[in-house]
Amino acid sequence: MAWTKYQLFLAGLMLTTGSLNTLSAKWADMFSAPGCSGTPKHAFSHPFVQAVGMFLGELSCLVVFHILLCHDRRKPEPTMVPGQSFNPLLFLPPALCDMLGTSIMYVALNMTSASSFQMLRGAVIIFTGLLSVAFLGRRLQPSQWIGILFTILGLVVVGLADFMSGHRNDSHKLSEVITGDLLIIMAQIIVAVQMVLEEKFVYKHNVHPLKAVGTEGFFGFFILSLLLIPMFYIHVGSFADNPRQVLEDALDAFCQIGHKPLILLALLGNTVSIAFFNFAGISVTKEISATTRMVLDSLRTVVIWVVSLALGWEVFHGLQILGFIILLLGTALYNGLHTPLMAKLPCCPGGQRAEEEEAPERERLLGGGKAANES
C-alpha cells in the first residue's frame, strides 16, 4: 500500500526533527563564549538549562492540544476525542524520571559524540524488558530475549569503538568518553522505570497523547526551573565545567548566550524540534503504524552519525557501523519488526497474527505518547 503525501510528510518530519533534537543539543555544547563579570571564554556546558528547554518543548504540546481542541469544537461535527478526565499528579512520577534521565543524558552528551549518544540510548530495551517482566508480569517472547542479547552485544561494540577512537579524539579525553557512555546507559535505567510507570498507571486512562506529553513537560519544566536556584549554590568541584564549579550556573548560561547569540539558536532548535518530534511520532503511529515509527526512530541514528561526520564533529570508526547494525537487529527483534517480513514468506504463514500483535502496540503508543520517543 502506497503512502499518501501526508504520511510521507509525517515520516519525514519525524526523521528530521528527531535528528535535529540531538544535533542541536550537541551543537550548543560545542560553543565557547565569555561568561558573567568578565569571566574568560569557556565551553557552554549547561546540561540542566538544556533540559529545561527540552521540557519547554514538551509543555508546548499542551498548548497545541488546547488549540486543536478549540478549533475542532467550532466544526459542525467535532472529530477530536479529548479523552477522559484524569488526575494530573499521575504524570508526576514519570515526569520526575524523565527529568532525571534527560538531565543525566545532557551531561553525558558533553562528554561523548552525538552518534554514540543516540546509539547507546538503545540500552533502554534491556531495562524496559526486564522491568516489564518484574513489575508488569509480562512474558517476553523468545525473539525479544534474543533482541535483548543482540542489544547488549551492540552496546559492547559501540563502547569498544568509543574506547578506540578516544585515543585519537582531541575534543574529548578517553576518560570523559567512557564516563559519558556509562552515564547514558545509566540514564536508560531511569527511562525504563519511566516507561513502566507510564504503562502501569497512565496508559489505562484514555489520555490524548499530546495532553500526556504536555502534562509531563509541565511538571518537568517548572520543577527543574525551580531546582536551578539551589543548583546555583551547590559546589561540585572539578566535576562541573563552569567557572564557579557549581552544579548548574544558569546566569553564566544566559551571559554566554548574550555574548554568542548562536547558542540561543541551538537551544531553540532543541526546544522546537522536541515539540514537533513528539507530534510527528504520535501522528505516524496513528496514520501509518507503530512499526514504522520504530523504524524511523532507528534511522535517525544514521542521520545523526552521517551529519556529525560531515561536519567534522567526530572521527569515522568502522566498529560504529557494526555496533549500529547489531543494535538495529536487537531493536527489530525486540519490537517484532521481523514478524511482518516473516509473514510474507511461504513457509511462515502468519500475516493476520502479525497484524493482531501490532494492534496493542499501536494502542499503547497512542494512549501514552512517550514510550517510543523523546530527545
Rank of each mutant, 00 (worst) to 15 (best):
S175P: 09
P47Y: 06
H208K: 08
E355K: 10
R244C: 05
D170K: 15
L345M: 12
P209I: 02
H172E: 12
S273E: 06
P209G: 05
V156L: 14
L299M: 13
I325K: 06
N270C: 10
P93T: 09
V284W: 03
Q118A: 10
V284D: 06
H338E: 10
I104N: 01
G281H: 01
G351D: 04
L13G: 12
L224P: 03
S171A: 13
F219A: 01
C36Y: 15
I189E: 04
E199K: 14
E314C: 02
T271C: 10
L20V: 09
Q245E: 12
C97F: 07
F86M: 08
A28G: 09
V202F: 00
C348T: 08
S132I: 10
A253K: 07
T39F: 03
F239K: 15
R138P: 05
H338I: 03
M54P: 03
S85L: 07
L333R: 01
W3H: 13
T102M: 05
G53P: 00
G220W: 00
A354L: 02
L56N: 02
L182W: 10
N278A: 12
L109K: 04
C36Q: 15
G258R: 11
N110C: 14
F316V: 13
L309T: 04
V315C: 08
F9K: 11
G12D: 05
F219V: 00
P209C: 06
S32L: 07
A187E: 01
G217K: 04
H208M: 10
A359F: 14
V133G: 03
A51Y: 00
C36T: 10
P230C: 09
E361N: 13
E198Q: 11
W145S: 07
Q320K: 15
F316D: 09
G57A: 07
L210W: 01
N278D: 04
E176R: 09
S32V: 11
G129C: 13
M119I: 10
V272A: 02
Y6P: 03
L341N: 08
L345W: 12
M119Q: 12
Y334D: 01
E216W: 09
L296V: 01
I146H: 13
S60A: 15
I321V: 08
M164P: 04
N270H: 11
L69S: 08
H317V: 12
V213A: 13
K211L: 09
L337N: 01
S113H: 12
K26V: 00
R138F: 11
K370L: 14
L227N: 00
E358R: 07
V107Y: 05
F86Y: 15
I325E: 06
G159E: 06
A123Y: 03
L227Q: 00
L68D: 11
A354K: 01
V246C: 07
S143F: 14
G281S: 13
H167T: 13
F276N: 01
L68Q: 15
G269C: 04
F150R: 00
A123T: 01
I67Q: 07
W305L: 09
V124G: 00
L311W: 07
P349M: 03
T285M: 08
A310K: 06
G122Q: 09
I274V: 15
V196F: 05
T331F: 10
T151L: 14
E77S: 15
G312L: 02
I125G: 02
T215E: 01
P40F: 11
L264I: 00
H66E: 12
L109R: 05
H235C: 04
S85K: 14
M231I: 03
M99A: 02
L328W: 05
A114N: 05
G269S: 04
V295Q: 03
F239W: 15
T291Q: 14
L120V: 05
